[in-house]
């Protein structure tokens, strides 16, 4: 801090500093309210008795707290929750590891044509999944991987490759070549460099990639319903079944919507610290 900054424009700022600060907090609270408003509806409706559940009375607090919604959906959701954990954990780990390898090669251990290969990988992010459903289900059946979670994991890993590759490529592009060159000079091969130089500094990128992959595989319905048999259905199928019957028990839908997002929230909390650092360090910067 020099005296010049203290006497110059800063003084003008200080006159406005308080109102600005108040305005800032007001705006932040307005945003927070907007983001929490649907959660309010989720929570109060989940706690209502079916007789009180109605669109026109959505803002009203429940007259009597009823945990029936939760009690009724829990047995329906539990197997799905277990399956979704068994699905989302391996998916986020495997696709991050593969994405790290791809991203490292495409940014720091390039081969001729790497600039063409990367866009080709990236384009995979954009295919509409409904469009490739039939050939995919056929292929998976021919591979004998339909019905179980393994096939679903494979598919999520494959379609997650473009984005995880993008995340790690951008992240590694941000680290200086000198580190890599130093390792090369020491005679380290590619795998050694990846394992001992690149990966150790990559936890933030892992956080970004894993959060992304965990979220998308956790919330996927389409692949889950097409590729797994009943005993392996992810939680979204159970959620859909509660929400999509001929009669929709709205208090149950809201309760299961809340229950189904808890594990993802847990992941956010656990990885949250790394997540911001990962974004800052350049993952996903294009």
């Amino acid at each position: 801090m020099t005296t010049r900054t203290a006497t110059g424009p800063v003084r003008i700022e200080s006159r406005w500093a308080r109102p600005l600060q108040v305005g800032r907090y007001l705006l932040l609270f307005a945003f927070a309210c907007f983001f929490l408003m649907p959660v309010y509806v989720l929570v109060v409706t989940a706690l209502k008795d079916p007789v009180q559940v109605s669109v026109s009375r959505m803002w009203e607090l429940p007259q009597s707290l009823s945990l029936n919604g939760f009690r009724e959906v829990w047995p329906k959701l539990r197997p799905g929750l277990v399956n979704s954990v068994l699905l989302a954990v391996p998916v986020s780990i495997i696709s991050s590891v593969l994405g790290a390898a791809n991203g490292f090669v495409l940014s720091k251990w390039r081969f001729p044509g790497a600039d063409i290969v990367f866009p080709l990988i990236l384009f995979g992010m954009f295919i509409p999944y409904q469009a490739i459903l039939i050939p995919m289900v056929r292929t998976m059946r021919d591979l004998g991987m339909q019905g179980g979670l393994d096939g679903l994991i494979l598919v999520h890993v494959i379609y997650g490759l473009p984005i995880t590759t993008l995340i790690f490529r951008s992240y590694f592009a941000g680290i200086s070549d000198e580190l890599i060159d130093a390792a090369k000079v020491d005679g380290a091969g590619m795998l050694r460099t990846l394992a001992y130089v690149a990966l150790p500094i990559a936890p933030p990128a892992f956080a970004v990639a894993m959060i992304w992959q965990f979220t998308s595989s956790w919330n996927d319905f389409l692949f889950g319903v097409m590729l797994t048999s009943k005993e392996n259905w992810p939680v979204t199928v159970a959620l859909n079944n509660i929400a999509g019957g001929q009669q929709v028990p709205f208090h149950e839908v809201m309760a299961s919507g809340l229950l189904a997002c808890l594990p993802t929230l847990l992941v956010y909390v656990v990885l949250g610290r790394f997540f911001m650092r990962g974004l800052m360090a350049g993952a996903l910067k294009g």
């Binding site: 068994l86 391996p90 393994d150 994991i153 005993e231």
Partner: peptide, 14 residues
């Protein structure tokens, strides 16, 4: 762990 977990899964269902 993940790979072993999913290979274990593949057994029963098919």
């Amino acid at each position: 762990v993940a790979t072993s977990a999913c290979s274990k899964d593949s057994g029963g269902s098919n």
